[in-house]
Nucleic acid binder design. Structure first.
Length: 281
DNA sequence: GGTTCTCTGCCGC
DNA sequence: GCGGCAGAGAACC
């Protein structure tokens, strides 16, 4: 039964990817032979995102590749399936993390600017690509953090951040100190589709709460993939912004943390204080 | 400012 | 497992 679900959803995904005018919910549901209601729920359970979100993500991916190959930015926008370039420009920053021309001239090799700062948890490395923040690492030793960045992005050109970049680091440090304020910077999240689903599920865990690996596996509709979830957490490159520190053992006991169990304990105890104080209001 | 579509919680079979 | 309603919200015109 479950395999039939995934097969139908996969077919719907292909339909979204190949259709020139994007199909609506009703059309997709008809293809699967279900009501729009049911189709929507199954799609969400299997993929972790709603059909509309999936279509939007696909268009965003399309426009990125088209921007590299098309004669003009406008051509790329229409080729990717957006029906108005004005509308696209309005959301370009969210989709690309920058202006379309900047993305276009970004070229082949990824360029990453980075800087290391200090916060209450020790050293913190913040790195930014053309698309947004691509790494937040925590550690004791600045040199080790930079080496970790090199290991994680072996093909990228790393460039030390200038003074303007320090402001960005300060903003991220502020966020790490008080995660509940949120981080209003574009994130460059790169990973497999599975990892992305796990990371999205992590971001849905509110500050002050925790979840187990099994919980996350169930949320993304793959209850048997507990170990894969743990691996995806370990592959997280954005400390605190993707709160893998909120994942604990089923027993409630802290499991490992890439940046040290002590930091995990610190983060969680801070967040539980925040939750307690907001509840007493 | 109105319409249309999407999304989710809840219920019924 | 599947369908459907209500209601809110976003996108669109």
């Amino acid at each position: 039964m479950a395999t039939q679900h995934t097969a139908k959803v996969a077919a719907a995904c292909r339909l979204i990817e190949t259709a020139e005018s994007l199909p609506g919910l009703e059309q997709l549901a008809r293809h699967a032979g279900w009501s729009p209601y049911h189709f929507h729920r199954v799609f969400r359970a299997v993929t972790g995102v709603t059909p509309a979100k999936y279509a939007a993500a696909h268009r965003a991916a399309q426009v990125r590749t088209k921007l590299a190959g098309s004669a003009t930015v406008t051509d790329a926008i229409y080729e990717a399936g957006y029906n108005s370039n004005g509308r696209f420009y309005a959301t370009a920053d969210a989709v690309l993390g920058m202006k379309p021309v900047a993305y276009r001239s970004g070229g082949a090799g990824m360029e990453i600017r980075f800087a290391v700062g200090e916060c209450s948890l020790g050293s913190i490395l913040v790195a930014q690509s053309e698309r947004g923040i691509c790494a937040i690492f925590l550690g004791d030793d600045a040199g080790a953090l930079v080496r970790e960045l090199q290991d994680r992005f072996p093909k990228a050109t790393l460039r030390a951040g200038d003074r303007a970049f320090e402001k960005l680091v300060a903003k991220v440090v502020g966020f790490v100190e008080a995660p509940q304020i949120g981080l209003d910077l574009p994130l460059d999240i790169r990973g497999t589709a599975f990892q992305q689903r796990v990371w999205q599920a992590l971001r849905d865990i509110p500050a002050g709460s925790t979840a187990s690996y099994g919980d996350i596996a169930r949320v993304i509709g793959k209850p048997e993939s507990v170990r894969a979830v743990a691996q995806a957490c370990a592959a997280n490159k954005l400390a605190v912004a993707i709160p893998c520190h909120r994942v604990v053992r089923t027993s409630g006991e802290l499991s490992g943390y890439r940046w040290g169990v002590e930091r995990k304990r610190d983060l969680l105890s801070r967040e539980s204080v925040i939750k307690a104080s907001s509840r007493s209001k």
